[in-house]
Amino acid sequence: MEVLSFLIPISLFLGGIGLAAFFWTIKSDQYDDPDGDSHRILSDEYDDHPKE
């Protein structure tokens, strides 16, 4: 049972990373234009660096 003392914190930590990543995507306006973003990857522009 001692393994629980590792597993529970690990599972919480991993879940927490996912939650933090989700927060970041919301905060950085990544859901404002889902259609546009899925099309933009097809364009040749900004292949080397993202648009300012």
């Binding site: 529970i8 919480l12 879940g15 927490g16 939650l19 927060f23 919301i26």
Partner: peptide, 20 residues
């Protein structure tokens, strides 16, 4: 956005608590 964040937190917590 605010509601979505609260929903995400509640979902995260619910999954972990259900596991326990």
């Amino acid at each position: 956005r605010e509601l979505l964040m609260r929903l995400a937190v509640a979902g995260f917590a619910a999954m972990n608590v259900m596991l326990l």
